[in-house]
Amino acid sequence: MIPCEVNRSIDVMAVKTCLMVTMCALASLSAFAQEPIESGLFTTPFTLEEMQEKQVVFETDHGVIAIDLRPELAPNHVGLVMTSVADGVFDGTTFHRMVQRGIVQGGDPFTKDPDRTSDYGRGGLGLVEAEFSDANHVRGSVSSVLVPGDLSSGGSQFLICVVPQSALDGYHSIWGQVVDGMDVVTRISETPVDADGLATDRVTIQSAKIRDKPPPEVPPFTIESDEELAAFRAVLTTTLGRIVVEFYPEVAPNHVRNFLRLVDTGVYNGVSFHRVVPGFVVQAGHLPTRREPLTDRQQRFIRNLEPEFNETAHVRGIVSMARLDDPASAATSFFICTDVAEELDGVYTAFGVVVEGVDVVAAIEATPTNGETPIDRIEIITAEVVRR
């Protein structure tokens, strides 16, 4: 049985594919409007080594988008992007077409002029030969706009996939991958459009720059010793009040590190207490209850944890990680015991205890429910790490 979410995705894919045909058809009209290129098609002046480990960073009206360049897939396209950035081609351009939570299109120099809307989608084409590869258009893939049937029509215009777009595989040259800012891309895709799919609001690339790819971030709470972790608390500010948690790193150090990391990076901000079982537990941290999608940085810190079962008794106030049948499936969801729950001892990882806000936990437990789901949303507004 296919979940309803998948059915919706299939329907959206059909719309996206149709839109891509429309985009390319409009682009084909503009290819004839390009000025002749006297020196022929663009060939990168950079060596492969000079293009490796580089990123292009777009500062947009909605935030920053960082894209890893992929010269091993499309060296001439990457060289063109690097040259275009140096020449200021992208600065002041807009994302002029989009499908909501599907795909966005930008990079047309004509979009710098608000009075040339009838020409949007016609600029910056006919500069570079197609460089197809075996790479697939996955979430965050960046590829060139190409006029159907004209392999020499690529240029500064590009597409960013909000979701996988298999219909584009083998027909567009992938030259990059978004590594930070997919939440920004998603917001851009939600820009209102007219009947032709053209953005009705300007979403501008304020500036573009090329930088060296930064080294991987050391996750927060990596270098602290187990003993040092005990110096931290988590403060959960909920719609019903404040809950303060202290930790047991001596018995579950990895769970403590994980929880502190998720709190510190804002993963729990905007999630709800989605399960209430009086006399047993209240549960929160389920990511589908989050008001906003995770950022790319936050997403990188989501991982399954190996169990650290210990002798801590699951009694009132104990904080423990929820999981599926697989003992190593705990990730973000946690519960607070509201009574003795011996059946959980040794099979769920207890890692902390509520030291302030027991009354708030009791208020959450007392909330009316439909089955185990609270009727009124009880939210973790903010979560922060403090020292004891």
Rank of each mutant, 00 (worst) to 15 (best):
G106R: 03
A230I: 09
L236C: 12
E246V: 12
V56N: 10
G102A: 06
P75R: 00
V162F: 08
E49K: 13
G346N: 03
A366R: 09
T312D: 05
S141Y: 10
R261M: 05
N258E: 06
V358E: 15
V385L: 07
S207R: 13
E342M: 08
M23Q: 10
R8G: 07
R316N: 10
M182S: 04
D119M: 10
F232K: 03
H286K: 13
L294T: 05
V386R: 14
G346T: 03
A363M: 09
R257P: 03
L305T: 11
S84H: 07
P253T: 02
V277Q: 10
V193P: 00
N136M: 13
A208V: 00
G88L: 10
D264P: 13
T332G: 05
M98Y: 04
G40A: 02
G266I: 01
A328L: 04
V277A: 10
R388S: 12
G279L: 08
V57N: 07
E342W: 07
E217I: 09
K112C: 04
V128C: 09
V6E: 11
V281N: 05
L324K: 13
V21T: 15
P71S: 02
V244S: 02
V138E: 14
V244Q: 01
R261P: 11
F58W: 08
V163S: 07
L41R: 09
H137T: 08
F232H: 02
S189Y: 01
V277D: 10
T94I: 15
T237M: 11
S207Q: 13
I378T: 04
A328R: 05
V277S: 12
A231L: 15
V89S: 03
R387N: 14
P164Q: 08
G241C: 01
G149L: 00
V353F: 06
